[in-house]
Simulated scan of single mutants.
Amino acid sequence: MGEYQYYEFLALDHPLTPGKLAEVRELSASAEIGVTGFVDHYESGDFDGDPRDMVERYYDVHLYLSDYGSRQLMLRVPQKLLPLDTVRPYLLDEQVEAWVSGDHLVLDLRSEDDDADWDEDDERLLLPLSALRDELASGDLRPLYLAWLAAVGTWERDEDAFDDDFEAETEPPVPAGLAALTPAQRCLADFLRLDPDLLTTAATLSPALAAPLAPQADLIAALPDPDKSSLLLRTASGEAPEVRLELLHHATPVPSPAPGSRTVGTLLDEAAVTRQRA
């Protein structure tokens, strides 16, 4: 008997054209396929498509699950709103990867745990996790730090996951608000099996998020007239989803993350102390 595997894709910005829909249908005879979604599962055999290629060409979000402990989330975000240079400090081996594809950056987040129990409710997580895309586009880097921290936590389960000198590595920039995560960020932390004690430890040096300095409407109104005219013209030309993400980026004041100061070893040691006190 083969392992159970679950694949789901979601197009958020634009529905698939008839031509692209026909291409996707060639990949699976069993999948449930629509102009915005693709769902397939296997109890034996494997999916003939390439999830990376499907996200690059057709979809904005992808969820993969298997009953042997694999979890994967892929997000496609316009690169001008989330540059690779911004993401690079949070990348960690195969567990937090990113690359540029055309005008987009693709983020690939994974968690592996052979001993984890299967939970059918995980198949309902793509929609709540898709909200992370808006957060990243707005400049909120907490999802990136959470993914890095979850990857660090795997070292406690498997000391062979990283090189021996890994514990001397310094954490990436620490975003504000780690002690007050959004629902999507809490969902991501659970999905990537982030140890709550490790998160509590990391959040001690994360300042609280300040209240917005002005309502979003005021921030948008303050944009230069040429920028507003350009955004309106693009909306009229069918780019409303892209414009929405850009407005989120302009109208969401997010403080710059603080430089990381703790080593991986320090974070893990302090999390162990927190765990013992509980």
Rank of each mutant, 00 (worst) to 15 (best):
D85P: 02
D48Y: 07
K20I: 09
A151N: 13
P143M: 13
V254T: 12
D40L: 06
D122T: 14
L141I: 11
A31P: 00
G19A: 14
R186T: 09
R88K: 05
Q72Y: 12
V39W: 09
A258Q: 14
T200L: 09
V174R: 05
P212V: 14
L194K: 05
V273W: 13
E246R: 03
V39A: 13
A151V: 11
H249S: 03
K80P: 00
T182N: 03
H104G: 08
D158I: 09
D108W: 15
L188E: 02
A240P: 04
A278R: 15
S101D: 12
A116K: 07
V35W: 10
T200C: 07
A137S: 02
A271N: 07
E171P: 06
D93N: 12
L127T: 00
T200A: 15
L178K: 01
V61I: 06
A22Q: 10
R88Q: 03
F162E: 02
Q72I: 06
A222L: 10
V61C: 07
A189I: 06
S28Y: 04
D114H: 11
S138E: 05
K80S: 00
D40T: 03
R133W: 00
L194Y: 02
W99P: 02
W118Y: 10
R88E: 03
P212M: 15
G265L: 07
R157H: 08
V243P: 01
P173A: 09
P196R: 10
S130W: 03
D13Q: 11
S111Q: 15
V100T: 10
S28L: 03
L146D: 01
D121T: 15
Y42R: 01
E94K: 15
Q72V: 09
D85Q: 05
R133V: 00
E120G: 13
R193A: 11
P259G: 14
V243C: 01
A131D: 07
A222E: 12
D227H: 15
P173C: 08
W148N: 04
P175Q: 11
V254Y: 14
C187H: 05
E94S: 14
L21S: 11
L73D: 01
D48R: 14
P257I: 15
D165N: 05
A168I: 06
L109E: 04
A31V: 04
L16D: 03
R124C: 06
P143L: 13
R52F: 13
V174W: 01
P15E: 00
R52I: 14
L223C: 08
D67H: 10
E171F: 11
T274D: 15
M54E: 09
Y58G: 08
W155Q: 13
G19S: 12
L109V: 04
P226C: 14
F47W: 08
V264F: 00
W148S: 02
D134V: 04
S66M: 14
L178S: 02
Q72P: 09
R52S: 15
A179M: 06
R234M: 09
K20A: 15
H249C: 04
P215T: 10
Q72N: 12
A217I: 05
L10S: 01
E8H: 05
M54Q: 07
T201C: 05
